[in-house]
Each structure stands twice: as C-alpha cells, then as structure tokens.
C-alpha cells in the first residue's frame, strides 16, 4: 500500500484514506460541554495509545535487518523486496494498537480502523448511505 506512484495515493475512498478520516472524526470536531459523549473512556485510551512513540529493541532489530538487506549500489526505488518490508511494518503497527487497548471500547475503535482498511482495500463494496466521493477520489477513478 505504501510504494505507489504519487497520483494513486490519497484518495478519500482509499484504504488508508478511510483510516485517516476516521482519526479526524474521533479526534477533532466541535465538543459541547452540555452534551455527553459515548464511550469517551475508550476513545481517550486509544488516543494515548496512538500517541506513544517508542524506539524499541524490535525497531532497532528491524532497521538493522533492513540495512543488511539494502543494496547500496541500487537506486533507492529499485529493490523489489521493499513492498514486503513496508507491509510488515504496517502490519506490526496495527497489531500494536489493538494489543495496547485496555478496554472493549478501545478494541472496538481499533477494529473499526482495521475493518476500515480492510474494507477500503476491497474498494468499499458495502453500501454506504449516500456516500460522497471527494474530488481526489474521483480524479483517481478517472485515471484508472
């Protein structure tokens, strides 16, 4: 999902696009103190979880392996092994999020993100209520 020509990234309906928008829906927007918010505890936990930036032994080992595999003679975009590498990184990132969830609510959100990505990769076949595609998504379709 990561190494693609520029014009193919960033559509509003793409897999990462859906994930990115859900982050905004959960984290931004108007909050009115007179109203309650559902499952607030779970959302707060997710936010803390998402913000943890850890340089771990796992990260170090992964970088060391990546450098080991890197062919310095080749250009930066010529290694056919790269998509696998980046894919692994993304996978482990997603697992880390659900692993760290401390409540059912947080897991629900993590699942929502995961499902969103899964569904997005299937081109969002599920019916959505009057879904509106962004201009970038339309442009993307025109190019395909």
């Amino acid at each position: 999902m990561t190494v693609v020509p520029a014009q193919q990234t960033g559509g509003g309906g793409g897999s990462s696009g859906l994930y990115d928008v859900l982050e905004l829906v959960l984290d931004r927007g108007l909050v009115i103190d007179a109203f309650v918010r559902v499952s607030l505890v779970g959302i707060e936990i997710l936010k803390i979880d998402v913000r943890v930036v850890v340089a771990s032994v796992d990260t170090y080992l992964r970088f060391a392996e990546a450098c080991n595999r890197l062919d310095l003679e080749a250009g930066p975009r010529k290694d056919p092994g790269l998509p696998d590498l980046v894919g692994e990184m993304t996978e482990s990132g997603a697992r880390g999020k659900s692993k760290g969830a401390l409540s059912g609510a947080a897991e629900t959100i993590s699942d929502a993100f995961k499902q969103a990505r899964d569904e997005g990769s299937e081109r969002e076949t599920e019916s959505r209520p009057r879904a509106r595609k962004s201009t970038s998504a339309r442009r993307k379709e025109e190019q395909e």
Binding site: T2, V4, G10, L24, V25, G29, V31, R77
Partner: peptide, 22 residues
C-alpha cells in the same frame, strides 16, 4: 520523493471549529 503523502479532502472543517473543553 522519499515521502508517501496522503491527502484527504475536501472534508468538513473538523480541525478548525473552536477548541472545546475536551
């Protein structure tokens, strides 16, 4: 070119409504 840049929009201005108490 060493960045993967993702753009989402146009969206309602989620990030530009007034900051609330939370």
């Amino acid at each position: 070119p060493h960045l993967e840049v993702r753009v989402n929009g146009p969206l309602p201005p989620y990030s530009f409504v007034e900051p609330g108490p939370a």
